[in-house]
Simulated assay, not measured.
Amino acid sequence: MDQASPSVLELDRIKLPFSFDVEKIFAEVKALQLNHFEYYDVISLRAPAHLVDPSLPFPPPAEDYADGTWCDWMDTNALKKSPYLKSIVNQFQEHTTVNLVRILRLAPGANVKEHTDPTLGLHIEKSVIRLTIPVLNENTQFFLNKEPVLMKPGECWYLRLTDPHYILNPSQTERINITIDMVPNQWVYELIENSIL
């Protein structure tokens, strides 16, 4: 990377060198027989282990929940039924710790108000980062720092979500995306840094 290039910590959006099969993802999402919903729907694919298996002990209180080490994480039944989604998660688990993984659905005509996620950025000590894979986003607009992020289905993006962001879905179809939270290690830093155009 040349010296004039921006630092990975300076950029609020970076497209990563992955391309996932949207048809396979969408088929597995549909196979989960998701319910009708109003406004926003979340389906956990990886979650705190004690929530997936209630026989496991509740973890002790933590001083800091930001880095995800306050509990063990486990695949949910939804992920176990979804081999292609599982292969995507495994692709990252081979290199780092993957915590929360979710399918997020935003209803037609719904918006997400501007907000920040204070622990989701590479520049935050003891944080996790969130990768976003759009699945269905016809006419959906994702704004980060007031600027649109032009994400196409099947792409994979790192977004600095500690910055203000909001979503508009003026379309007649729901917006679906996959989010993958992971612990940033040397592999993650190098992946993101090498993805800077």
Rank of each mutant, 00 (worst) to 15 (best):
L32Y: 00
P83S: 15
I25P: 02
N77A: 15
D41I: 02
E63W: 11
L100F: 13
N77I: 06
H36M: 12
P61V: 04
Q33I: 02
N90L: 07
A49S: 14
A31Q: 15
T97I: 14
D21N: 08
V89T: 04
H36F: 14
D67R: 07
L85S: 02
P54F: 13
A78V: 07
I25Y: 03
N35S: 13
V98Q: 05
L51I: 11
D67L: 08
F26T: 15
T76G: 03
I88L: 02
K81N: 09
S19Q: 15
D72Y: 08
D67W: 08
D53P: 04
I43Y: 00
Y65S: 05
E94D: 12
V22M: 10
N77R: 10
K24D: 05
D75Y: 06
L34F: 02
P59S: 14
P48G: 11
L45C: 04
V42F: 03
F37C: 06
L45I: 09
T69P: 02
Q93T: 13
Y39G: 09
D53E: 05
P59L: 05
K80F: 06
D53Q: 13
Y39E: 14
R102N: 14
Y65C: 04
N99Q: 13
T97Q: 12
N77K: 10
Q33S: 11
H50L: 00
K81G: 05
S87C: 01
R102H: 09
Y84E: 12
D67T: 13
N77L: 13
P54H: 15
I43F: 00
S44E: 11
E38C: 09
Q93Y: 12
T97H: 10
P54Y: 15
L85D: 01
A62T: 13
Q93C: 14
Y84T: 13
F58L: 14
N99F: 15
P48D: 14
P59H: 09
V89F: 05
A27H: 10
T69W: 03
E38Y: 15
F20G: 00
Y40G: 02
D53S: 02
I43K: 00
K86S: 08
I88S: 00
S44V: 01
P48F: 09
L45N: 06
P48L: 07
V22F: 04
S44D: 13
C71Q: 04
D64R: 07
P54A: 09
V89G: 00
L100E: 14
V52T: 12
D64M: 06
D21S: 08
V22H: 03
D53R: 06
N90D: 08
C71M: 06
A49F: 08
L32P: 00
S87I: 01
P48M: 14
W73P: 05
V29M: 07
